[in-house]
């Protein structure tokens, strides 16, 4: 296929997906899968799962991550460019048009009342999105404790009006993950050293049991 034709196809396909998919991220990703994997066969299923894992592990909107990757795979840098442009453009046009008359719209009394009601609903939507993601996460002490601590600290800081950016939470979380991993690595390395064996021997069988158990447990947590 000629490159320029591929650019156009990528752009049009992603534009269509951006225009007709409601509900963002996950809804969009499933439409992308149907269009590009099942119908157009531009990427195979395994590759798509790979792309999903990458989209989830990198910052930014999932739809953008996915279309950039697929675009690059199909037609290089400009493929990525046109695919991303395609997925973003409908949003830009629609929201821009809405924003032009939104203030006038909001000044209508009953519209304002409607949006008071919608506020309560949006709070619920955010909460349920958080809970849904939590269910998808592998259930273990590490994940639960971190999620709960972050939520509690965030509410506390906000109520006491202490300025502590969410970004710090994310950085600290990444740091904790890394430290946790290094400790696990260190413990499991130590196990194979003769020096470590002696230590276990000196302290009796209970320690040995613990040492044998912990790395495996942590290993399985990490796999999640």
């Amino acid at each position: 296929m000629k490159k320029s034709k591929m650019f156009f196809l990528l752009f049009i396909t992603m534009f269509k997906i951006g225009l007709f998919t409601f509900g963002g991220g996950y809804a969009m990703v499933s439409v992308i899968e149907r269009e590009l994997v099942e119908k157009k066969k531009w990427v195979n299923h395994e590759e798509f799962l790979n792309i999903l894992a990458i989209a989830e592990s990198t910052p930014g909107p999932h739809a953008v991550n996915t279309s950039t990757y697929i675009g690059y795979k199909c037609a290089g840098f400009f493929g990525a460019f046109f695919a991303t442009l395609g997925v973003v453009l409908p949003s830009l046009i629609i929201i821009f048009c809405i924003s032009l008359f939104f203030d006038k719209f909001m000044s209508l009394t009953y519209v304002r009342y409607a949006f008071y009601g919608i506020s309560a609903c949006v709070v619920f939507l955010i909460l349920s999105a958080g809970i849904k993601l939590f269910k998808h996460l592998k259930f273990n002490i590490f994940n639960t404790v971190i999620a709960v601590i972050v939520a509690v600290l965030m509410v506390t800081f906000s109520l006491l009006s202490i300025g502590f950016s969410s970004i710090y939470f994310i950085i600290i979380g990444g740091g904790i993950g890394l430290i946790f991993y290094l400790i696990t690595l260190f413990v499991s390395l130590k196990k194979f050293k003769p020096k470590g064996e002696k230590l276990i021997f000196d302290n009796g069988s209970i320690v040995k049991k613990e040492l044998n158990k912990t790395p495996e447990e942590k290993e399985s947590e990490k796999d999640a």
Binding site: L133, L137, V150, M154, S158, G173, G175, G177
Partner: peptide, 16 residues
């Protein structure tokens, strides 16, 4: 490992 640490933080942030 870094991502495993970030994932629960993001969920905590959303719920918070």
């Amino acid at each position: 490992a870094v991502l495993a640490g970030i994932r629960p933080v993001v969920i905590g942030l959303i719920i918070g």
